[in-house]
Simulated assay, not measured.
Amino acid sequence: MEFDVVVVGAGPAGSMAAKYAAKNGARTLLIEEHAMIGSPVSCTGHISVKALNECELPEGNFINKRIRGAFVYAPNYHSIPIDGKRTMTYVVERKIMDREMAKAAASAGAEIWVDTAVRSVKKVNGGVVLEAVSEGKRTEIPAKVVIGADGVKSMVAKSAGLGRIPHVCAGIQVEASYEPRDDEFVEVFLGQRYVPKFFAWAVPTSGDCCRIGLNADSDAHMYLDRLLKEHEIVSKKARGTVDLIMGGIPVGTLKSTVTDGVLIVGDAAGQVKPVSYGGIYMGTRCAKIAGEVAAKAAIEDNVCSARLKEYERRWRGEFGRELAFGLEFRKIFGRMTDEDFNEAVTALDDPEILDMITQYGDIDRPSLLARQFFKLSTKERVWRFVKLFSRVFF
């Protein structure tokens, strides 16, 4: 059977793309290389309220915890509370959530195959043919359009000639017994000794457990071990570490996410925030566009690059500026010394500034808060903060 749209990868972006392709009338197949959707997990499972809304799931048994804020620790252990005063994020079980999203795609009309790994994508007249191994047997899957949602090492993108993500960092975490300062707050840790160019976290889950982890360009295991054993706060509270997970996180996007018969979405496209390194909100938003465009192009029997470019225009129109801001912020953040972080946290420790962060802080669109900072730049502490960032940038 020839499908109109085949989606490779049954993570949140892939399932959403399949759902929207099916909803728009396409004969849709969603394939997953692993035997079980949602396994193995390679994500902290800390997502915003907006991200869950974009997943189009009701609150369910996959939610472990509701989070309203964060304690941010400078390298000198001075901390500030960022209190959203309402539920701002959720801690979820990704295995369950991913499966619920795949079920929603099936309910919309998508067929699902698991234990099916794509080896290559060949362009043919009027579409593509996927060469795959399904349940141990070689098979060919003809389609008009393929949507690659197969992660940072996307075989679909590489095989279609769209290249690789410009940079991939590592995310690593353990689950451990850990008494959080407040179980409605995550804890964020800064400092070159433990997380050069990035940040570490302790995210409450259920019971007395937290997910403790960090991002790193290299030596991720070494930095996590150092955090758990030497950090003045973490080392005193983390006990009985279990369930080590690790995954790649894209930094930057593909130059193009479209070619004849092919669209790339989610982590495979680099649709991840360069400030918080979360990808579910942006990935699912872009996946809806991808599913819609792919379905309509397939039904029209016009799957050339020029037709599919609608997807690229629309998703970059919505997120291009935010991604550009995030990448510039990442450069500045990466240049900051421990002394810079200490100064920044001290400068932000002001009731008026913290109220502004509460009002305008948006984990999915951090540029909104940045604009408010410049409006308050006549305030001495904000001016200190702006001058600090300007010094690091220039």
Rank of each mutant, 00 (worst) to 15 (best):
R181I: 15
E187S: 10
A170G: 03
S177N: 11
Y194G: 03
Y178G: 06
E187H: 05
S177I: 10
G191R: 09
D183K: 14
P180R: 01
E184V: 10
Q192F: 04
D183T: 08
Y194Q: 04
E175S: 07
A176H: 02
V186Y: 00
C169E: 10
Y178P: 07
V168D: 09
V186E: 04
D182G: 05
V168N: 12
D183I: 04
G191S: 11
Q192M: 06
V174Q: 03
R193W: 14
V186P: 01
Q192P: 01
G191M: 11
C169V: 09
A176R: 02
I172C: 02
V195P: 08
E187L: 07
K197Y: 11
V168L: 12
A176W: 01
F189V: 09
V186A: 09
D182N: 15
D182Y: 12
A170V: 12
F185H: 01
K197R: 12
S177E: 14
K197A: 10
I172F: 02
Q173C: 02
A176G: 03
C169W: 09
Q173D: 08
G171M: 05
L190Q: 14
E187W: 04
G191Q: 11
V195R: 04
Y194R: 03
G171T: 00
D183C: 09
E184L: 14
E175T: 06
F185G: 01
F185I: 00
P196K: 00
L190M: 15
E187R: 04
D183H: 13
E179V: 13
V168H: 08
G191K: 10
C169F: 09
V168E: 13
S177W: 11
V188Y: 11
E184R: 14
V174L: 02
A170S: 11
G171I: 03
L190G: 14
